[in-house]
């Protein structure tokens, strides 16, 4: 998907939606304020059906608040939010049955076993089973899918942090949701668990057609998982596009380092080939080392966040408070 990154400076006016199915999530002008402190100041984005969208941003940028509004757990101060065609604040139980939420569990259900808990929670979904989406997800199958078969009959209190997170993911999936929300799903995962989780997300999106919105701090994860990345900073979306498109967008996206006469030089450029050619023509054999590094998503992210966080009016506002 080659989405063009956009940098909205103000809330876009409501445009007629693109042809095709309705987006799974549609957010326009979402604002959230606690007293005088504004956490979200006009957030706009869509999640199309079957799309995996990653919400990135520094701590306190409003990621969790955004997700909680979409889950219907929190009322926004202003703006229109549509999740699977309904306002989450008024979403009924039929709507709730189509949505999966992966929560950060802590110490709930210590005496239950994963198998018993999943089978119990799954029971709530039986009335919502449809011919093309049988609910709930078969417990044995789900346990195998998240890699918990061996621990299925152990007390949850005895599971390690990583296993517990797998259980959290399984709980979010038990109702075979059409739309899944994950708030930092891989916090506390070891590399193997992380890879397994990424495979699972791909499978969900490819085989089940599940639309997924997740937040993360891990840029590599965002790059690997997301069809589209949203960067949330300072209460607004400052970038929206695929990882590749975002990376291209940032000026000076590549870095050339060289050593001449034992001295180090660094230069940022977009035009790698002409620059390196000139460099070689000018200095020839004097160059003893040359390294070209293309900017990755991390550089892009840092650049974006810095650009938008260091806007002068923000600093004034900070001082005034």
């Amino acid at each position: 998907m080659a989405a063009v990154p956009t940098f909205p400076d103000s809330a876009e006016p409501l445009q007629p939606g693109p042809p095709g199915p309705r987006p799974a999530v549609r957010v326009r002008g979402l604002r959230m304020a606690y007293g005088t402190h504004e956490v979200l100041s006009g957030v706009d984005f869509d999640v199309r059906q079957g799309e995996v969208v990653c919400l990135l941003g520094p701590n306190g940028a409003g990621k969790t608040t955004t997700i909680e509004v979409l889950e219907g757990f929190r009322l926004p101060s202003a703006g229109t939010v549509e999740v699977l065609g309904a306002d989450p604040a008024r979403g009924d139980d039929a709507w709730r049955a189509r949505i999966g939420v992966v929560l950060q569990s802590w110490r709930d259900h210590p005496r239950w076993t994963p198998r018993r808990l999943l089978s119990y929670l799954g029971g709530y979904y039986t009335p919502w089973s449809t011919p093309d989406r049988t609910r709930p997800w078969d417990v044995e199958d789900l346990l195998a899918t998240v890699g918990l078969t061996e621990e299925a009959d152990r007390k949850i209190a005895t599971l390690s942090g990583g296993r517990r997170r797998r259980l959290d993911v399984a709980v979010g999936l038990i109702g075979r949701p059409e739309l899944l929300f994950l708030d930092e799903p891989t916090a506390g995962f070891d590399p193997q668990a992380r890879r397994d989780f990424h495979d699972l997300v791909h499978r969900l999106s490819d085989l089940e057609g599940t639309s997924i919105l997740l937040t993360t701090h891990d840029l590599g994860e965002a790059e690997r998982l997301a069809d589209r990345i949203l960067i949330l900073t300072d209460g607004r979306i400052v970038a929206d596009g695929s990882a590749a498109a975002l990376t291209r967008q940032v000026a000076g996206s590549s870095e050339v380092r060289w050593v001449r006469d034992g001295e180090q030089f660094v230069h940022a450029t977009d035009e790698i080939v002409p620059f390196v050619r000139r460099l070689l023509e000018q200095h020839g054999d004097e160059l003893t080392d040359l390294e070209v590094r293309r900017a990755d998503l991390e550089d892009t992210y840092i650049a974006m966040v810095q650009r938008f966080e260091s806007r002068p009016q923000r600093h004034l506002a900070e001082v005034a408070r």
Partner: peptide, 20 residues
């Protein structure tokens, strides 16, 4: 306790979960 440890929230995320 169950407000704090997330048990209640899990049920809030279920259809008719609070009744259950």
């Amino acid at each position: 306790m169950e407000r704090e440890d997330g048990t209640l929230l899990r049920h809030k995320a279920l259809p008719h979960g609070m009744e259950g």
